[in-house]
Structure formats: structure tokens, C-alpha cells
Design a protein around this nucleic acid. Structure first.
Lengths: 338, 338
DNA sequence: CTGAAAGCGCTAACAT
DNA sequence: ATGTTAGCGCTTTCAG
């Protein structure tokens, strides 16, 4: 009853032998093929259990069976944004018996290219990637493979296969229009490292366009070299208010982490929100909405992006058709900080 | 120069043929074996590139080559804690050319057991698990395999192979002693679902023991049925202050997310910290330390746990010896909320 | 409903 | 330094 040997893994052949059937039948029984007799299934299952048999999917996948691995490439795990996406992905994959194989590109296109190559070497059933300045080589690698590929987060560019996300430029634009309509005129921006995070850059671009429509321009634009964080946002606002020639009536932050830092700076310095200063962020994190005064921001539907990406990978594996572009949209949250 | 065919993946045999060498030599060249002539390496690499060859690790691993996959099983991705661990893991694995294959148990022992089985079927080079009430079957599965296994987060129980983490009971105990020494006497507790999160339960247990040493007991103990969150913490404190018969001078929260919610409740209701009420959390998240008044809490070294786990998996793969128990410790952060 | 044969693409031995 | 041989453990044909 106990596994006989801790090193030599029992094989299907051994299970078959013990059950007194052929390897083929044993395989069919174990995978729940309907053609096998209930009787044989029981026999084989008993044999497998008694040997402590553990299916070897390496062999299975090599022999032409399906893989249940999906390569997932994300730029970072440092704030909650990508874990939220991953959660959505994992959840749907899990329910279908699939597993994500993870790679973190750290916003580095070369590392990303490497990851693609390494993960494809495992012949996954699909690939999901949140691109970070993808190289031509990367794109041609992805184009050359015969498996469903979903590019996530962004739908502003033309995907190799499928894309799930939202328009970041559109989100920045919508926020600018909204704030201009509410009467803000002296808008400043505080962001993190934009050369790496091109989606944040797209939002800023859209925001600028929205101001421009009203004949306005940013009164100040601070970008800090480090990744976004609450501490960074707090520091950024302190710096901006110290040095800016024009005192802004609103600050648009590159994301909610940064914006919450701004809110904390205001709290600590008796700057009233939104009377003295308005603040807006991006993402719609729970954190921002739980503040004493909820943050004005744009909700990005991160988990839904993950779920939709997974669902479409799974659909394609099942042989069904999918759309090329899936826009999960965004929603403006009118909080109390503006 | 372009990949010849998008479906039929070129094999090593084809590369070898085109380079005019044997399969073995081609393999050696491609994997950077030192015995091959620089000349042949060039030839083979050229052939591989021209065919758009992509290594098939399924075949390699099946044939006895090394796997570079490491199974990783975590209970959740919903707050930043496990993503932080995963980040540490991924970072170190990545640098060694390894990839995590992920499973999320959702704090469900049965799902965990399933994940173990499914992930082991891919014959990973190692396995890292943050157990959630692991079943006997799970433990015997893990004991029966021939690969390095690290149980992470907790070192309060005896590991199957290796364990990396800290004593959660110890953290609760240390916090209680610290707060008692600072003069707090009416301590309450607010937590999330403890039946699922046994590490939070261990902290509470330690905290109680610490109070007990001073002849004290919790004046109130609220546990909410849902997962932890800022909103939940805020609600919990509101509820506690409404209903508690004894007004506490301190509330220990199950973690920082919850504690930050408590801080927000105080801010919104003009409850002064720490004069009217003191608050303590657990984890040492950046969020809590960026508050206008930094949170009193215990720093758990989450990323370090991930890094250490990965390092030890890698050491064992390299054939080196490792310790059974690795305590990364914790550190008390004396913030301004106590 | 079950079985026999062939082979997935690679790597580790063992030659040479 | 390179080649030959023999599988790894399974799944897919194709036959009964």
C-alpha cells in the first residue's frame, strides 16, 4: 500500500502489468476515457493507487498529448496590479486544469525575449504576455508559433494574435476631460519611471491631450526615476509643492499608489482635499477607496483582464474562435479628492 | 532566414543535418558544452538560427536532462504578501534559468493536494509550498518524491524536507510583550477568517500568551468571516468600538491591511492615534509605513523568504547540503500608532 | 472494448 | 572532438 520506492517512480507499464491490462488500456482508464469498462477502470485505479503512480506529463506531452501549461510573462510583481491580473488568470486556468508558468521581465525587452524563448521551449498550450517594449525578435517569435497568444493590459497597439485590455491613452483623456469639466485649470502631473512603464506614459499622453482640448497645459510635470510606490508619491508631491512656480489646483498621479502617497502628504501637512488641492490617480485600488476620503481615480479591471485572457486561451485550445481585440474598458470613479 | 513553416517545429535532427554533424554534437554545441570546437558551434548555431529552431525541453527532460521548472503552491494572491514572496522566488529562480509553475490553493487543503499531484506530474526540479492545513495525503506525497521541497512562511511545524520562514506565534508573543511594556492594558483583537489562515491564528495565539504573562487577557476579539482587507479592518474597528463593553486602549489587527483600515477609521472619526487608541498590525507593508503616522507592526521578511527558498532549492539541485530549518526572523517596528 | 506497434525529440552512455 | 546506440514514458494510429 505504501509507495514501494522513493526514487524509482512507477510507470504506466507497471500499473498496466499489475492490473493485467495493456499500457494503452491503463492510460485510457486513468484519463477517464468512456470506452473502457467500469470494471477495468476500477482495476487500473487500484493498481495505480497501490503503486503510488504519478502521471508523467512530460512523456504525455512529448507523445502528442495535450499540455496544461500556459506561459505567463509579466513585467513586475511589485505592486498589486499584476498579481491581480495573475489571480484572474490563475483562477480560470486552474478551473480548467491548467497552470501558469511564470516569467517576470522586469520591464526589460531583452529579458522578455529570453523568457519567451525559454517558456516556449516547454511547449505550453498558450502564452499570455503583458508586453514591455517588445522587440521585433519577440514579435516574430510569437508570430512563428502555433499556439494561442494573448497580449494583455493594452489594446492601443496591434496584437500578434489576441489582445485583452483597455486604452490607457483613453483613460488619461477621459480623466482630463472630467477634471476640466469640474473646473480645474492648473493641473500638474507626478509620475514614476515612464521610460519603462509605457502604459503610464500613454495615460499621461491622453491626459495632456484632454487638457489641450480645453486650451490648457500641464503646469508642472514631475517624474521620479524609481518604480511607483506610496512613499514615492508622497515625496513627489512634497517636492512639487516646494518647487513649482505655479501652485496647481490638481495633481494627476501616474497611479493609485503614487496618489495615495500624495493624499498622505496632504493629511500630514493639513492640506485640505479637495479645497486646497485635488488629487486623482489610476487603477481603482481598494486602498484608495478605503481612505477617509475616497480617491478620485479610474478603475482598471485587472482581474477581469486576467480572466478574459485565460478564457480566450482556453477557448482557442478547445478549437473555438475568438475575437482579436477585447476591450474590458475602464470606469471613472468620482471620489472625494477632486 | 525566416522560419520555414509555422506549424512543423524544426527538430534537433534537422539542425544537425543542416550543420552536417550528428544530433549529439548539435545538442552539445547548442547547450554550450566546452568540448565542442568553436567552429562547429558556429556552424550549428547558424543552422539553428536559419531554421528558427526552438529547443524542446519536454523531450530533454524526459530523456533524463534537467528540468528548470519549480512548482510553487501559494494560498492566495489577493494581498501583496504572497506576491512579495513570489517575487523573491521568481527573481532568484530566473537568474538561475528556472521558472516557477504556479498553483493557488485558495487555503483549501483538498485543492492543495490536487495541485501537488498535478504539478509533480510535470517532474519539476523542486517544489515550494506555503501550506494551508496540509492533509496527510499531501505530506506523504511530498515525502515520497525525490526532489527538494521547501515549506515556507512558517517554521513552527516540522517540515517534510526544508522550511523557510519565521515563528508566527513568536511574532504575536513579541508584540504583546512590547505593548504590555509600553503600558497598554486593555488590548483587543480584530482579525479576518482564522480557520483558513492558520498563521494569523498562530500570531493571535502568541499575542494571547504574551498578555497572559502579564496577567492580562483580550478585552475583545472580533473575527470577521472574510479575507483580510483595508475595508474589512475599517469596518471591524467601527463595529468593535460600537459594541465593546470595555473600551480598549489598543487594538492588535491580524495584519497590516486590516490595521490600516483601523487607522483610516480613526482618521475619519477624529480618534487620535495613539492618545485615544493605539493600533498594531503585522507584516510591515510599505503602505503602513507611509501613513501620516507610521504603523506599529512586525516586519515579516517576505521577499527574503522567497529568495531563501529559491536559493536552497537551487543549492540542493546543485548537490549541496542545506539546513532543514531556516528562520528569517521578524523585526518589531515601533511606529507612531502605539 | 482492448491491444500492438511506432515514435514524439531529446540526452546519457559508450564508443571512436 | 564527434558519432552511435538505446532508451525516457507516454499517446496516437491502426488492428482486432
Amino acid at each position: 500500500m505504501a509507495p514501494t520506492n522513493r526514487t524509482a517512480k512507477p510507470t504506466l507499464a507497471q500499473v498496466a502489468a499489475r492490473a493485467g491490462v495493456s499500457e494503452t488500456t491503463a492510460a485510457r482508464a486513468l484519463r477517464g476515457s468512456t470506452v473502457v469498462t467500469r470494471d477495468t477502470v476500477t482495476k487500473v485505479e487500484k493498481a495505480a493507487a497501490s503503486l503510488g503512480y504519478l502521471r508523467n506529463r512530460l512523456a504525455g506531452a512529448l507523445a502528442g498529448g495535450p499540455s496544461n501549461q500556459v506561459a505567463v510573462i509579466l513585467p513586475s510583481l511589485s505592486n498589486i496590479v499584476f498579481p491581480d491580473v495573475l489571480k484572474g488568470l490563475e483562477d480560470r486556468l486552474e478551473h480548467a486544469g491548467f497552470h501558469p508558468v511564470l516569467g517576470i521581465s522586469n520591464y526589460d525587452p531583452d529579458r522578455e525575449e529570453n523568457l519567451i524563448r525559454n517558456l516556449l521551449a516547454w511547449r505550453p498550450a498558450g502564452l499570455v504576455i503583458a508586453p514591455s517594449g517588445t522587440t521585433d525578435t519577440s514579435r516574430s517569435l510569437l508570430r512563428g508559433v502555433d499556439l494561442p497568444v494573448v497580449e494583455i493590459m493594452d489594446i492601443d497597439t496591434d496584437p500578434v494574435d489576441m489582445a485583452v485590455g483597455m486604452s490607457h491613452r483613453g483613460a488619461g483623456l477621459a480623466m482630463a476631460r472630467h477634471l476640466v469639466a469640474r473646473g480645474y485649470r492648473r493641473c500638474a502631473y507626478i509620475g514614476h519611471d515612464l521610460t519603462r512603464d509605457h502604459r503610464a506614459a500613454a495615460r499621461l499622453d491622453g491626459f495632456r491631450a484632454g487638457l489641450d482640448e480645453a486650451g490648457l497645459a500641464l503646469t508642472a510635470c514631475v517624474t521620479l526615476p524609481d518604480p511607483s510606490s506610496v512613499a514615492q508619491g508622497r515625496r513627489g508631491l512634497a517636492q512639487l509643492l516646494d518647487h513649482a512656480e505655479i501652485r496647481p489646483d490638481l495633481v494627476y498621479f501616474s497611479n493609485d499608489d503614487m496618489a495615495v502617497g500624495g493624499v498622505f502628504h496632504c493629511m500630514a501637512n493639513a492640506i485640505r482635499l479637495p479645497e486646497d488641492l485635488a488629487i486623482a490617480g489610476f487603477n481603482g485600488l481598494e486602498l484608495g477607496q478605503s481612505l477617509p476620503v475616497p480617491l478620485t481615480t479610474t478603475a482598471s479591471h485587472r482581474t477581469r483582464i486576467g480572466e478574459t485572457a485565460a478564457d480566450n486561451i482556453l477557448m482557442r485550445i478547445a478549437g473555438r474562435d475568438t475575437k482579436r481585440l477585447m476591450d474590458v474598458g475602464f470606469s471613472l470613479i468620482e471620489g472625494g479628492t477632486s
